[in-house]
């Protein structure tokens, strides 16, 4: 276990040490103490390591993550796991706005609530939120899965492409071109797997969720829809 005191050693030293880990390493377990809401903690990691941050983080924690498993024992500020490529990021508390934005792969788990714009423009990431998500979540989401055990705010999935959204609670309103869709066997199966990987299988069952997706009326240009653009 490598323990890193962010208060004493600073962010650049932490991220330099983490960026130096390439391919196989024997330093597979890291602990970051005294994060105190600092920005960009463990951003840009590209190695199969485990990193635990003991406290709350500021902007862009775990951004661009590849391969690593990063767990925040607190809440995360705006843009956590932004543009994640692969790996797993688990937030024990809440996440601020645009969590998992533009994420291309990997799994983001938020044990508390996520604020507005969660999963905005997601492109392949899977996001499991144990609580609620705020307004404009999954705006222009292209692919990947969003699983919400609680409620969704206004304008869920506005201008959605092909991301699949599963919400257990209420949806305050659906965004343009986002509609409820039928749950088919493959969706129950995918959800079962996501709940298990998202450490939520003890909390919810796939049959409790509704599925939302794109009506596909907006995202390819159609002259009949000109007034909607």
């Amino acid at each position: 276990m490598q323990t890193f005191d962010l208060g004493a050693e600073g962010l650049r030293a932490l991220n330099s040490a983490l960026h130096a880990l390439k391919g196989q390493t024997n330093m597979t377990s890291w602990e970051v103490v005294n994060p105190k809401g600092a920005h960009a903690i463990a951003a840009g990691v590209d190695a199969p390591v485990d990193i635990t941050v003991r406290g709350s983080t500021g902007y862009y924690c775990a951004g661009m993550n590849k391969q690593a498993t990063i767990r925040v024992k607190g809440s995360a500020g705006p843009g956590v796991a932004e543009n994640m490529m692969s790996g797993t990021v688990i937030i024990d508390g809440d996440a601020s706005q645009y969590a998992g934005a533009t994420g291309r792969g990997g799994l983001l788990v938020i044990k508390g609530n996520a604020a507005s714009r969660c999963g905005i423009s997601m492109k392949g990431i899977d996001i499991v939120v144990h609580g609620n998500i705020g307004h404009m979540s999954c705006f222009m989401a292209q692919s990947g899965h969003m699983v919400v055990l609680g409620d969704a705010g206004d304008a869920l999935g506005d201008s959605l492409y092909e991301a699949k959204l599963f919400v257990r609670g209420s949806v305050k309103s659906l965004g343009a071109d986002c509609i409820e869709k039928e749950m088919r066997p493959e969706h129950y199966e995918a959800l079962e797997d996501l709940l298990r990987r998202g450490e939520a299988d003890g909390k919810a069952r796939p049959e409790e969720f509704r599925r939302y997706g794109s009506a596909r009326k907006l995202y390819t240009f159609n002259i009949d829809n000109a007034s909607s653009y």
Binding site: K36, G37, A38, S56, G58, Y59, S75, G77
Partner: peptide, 12 residues
């Protein structure tokens, strides 16, 4: 107290 911060950093 009740405290406000633009970021959590301000409250730590």
């Amino acid at each position: 107290y009740v405290a406000f911060g633009s970021e959590y950093r301000a409250l730590v």
